[in-house]
């Protein structure tokens, strides 16, 4: 592809900085793109849940087929990668939280730590509720 592009207003050929792979040249930007990539996994996971809801509405046989698909190797790999990516999203979300609300009288480390602690606490609560068979 040409690195020059003529715009509608000027006939002049404007130099365009090539964009392909710019983020691979710096670990900071790689981490940034991995974080952005977690959004793709999260979207796909929401769609998996949506399909499950659709199969649930169709009856026991359809729902059990969806359950069987969840146990397929492809699904397990997808969820394992998704788990790592969304854990990373979770960490970065609370890591930047102090920066989204600057000039707080609270220590930024306390905000990040509090957020992570809340995520762990909610996760343990959900697992405990499932373990002891909450209604």
């Amino acid at each position: 592809m040409s690195r020059y592009r003529s715009t509608a207003k000027t006939a002049a050929r404007t130099y365009m900085q090539p964009m392909a792979g710019w983020w691979t040249k710096n670990p900071y930007f790689v981490r940034y793109m991995v974080r952005e990539g977690s959004a793709l996994l999260l979207t796909a996971y929401a769609l998996v849940l949506l399909v499950g809801l659709w199969r649930l509405s169709q009856g026991a046989a359809a729902f059990d087929a969806w359950r069987a698909a969840l146990a397929s190797p492809l699904s397990v790999v997808f969820h394992a990668v998704g788990l790592v990516m969304v854990v990373y999203h979770s960490y970065t979300w609370f890591d930047v939280m102090p920066k989204t609300a600057p000039d707080q009288p609270i220590d930024p480390k306390l905000i990040t730590g509090g957020g992570i602690a809340a995520a762990v606490a909610v996760s343990v609560l959900i697992l405990a509720a499932l373990l002891w068979g909450a209604p």
Binding site: Y45, W93, A119, I126
Partner: peptide, 8 residues
Amino acid sequence: SALIGPVL
């Protein structure tokens, strides 16, 4: 998703 995404 930061709170409950991983556990789900």
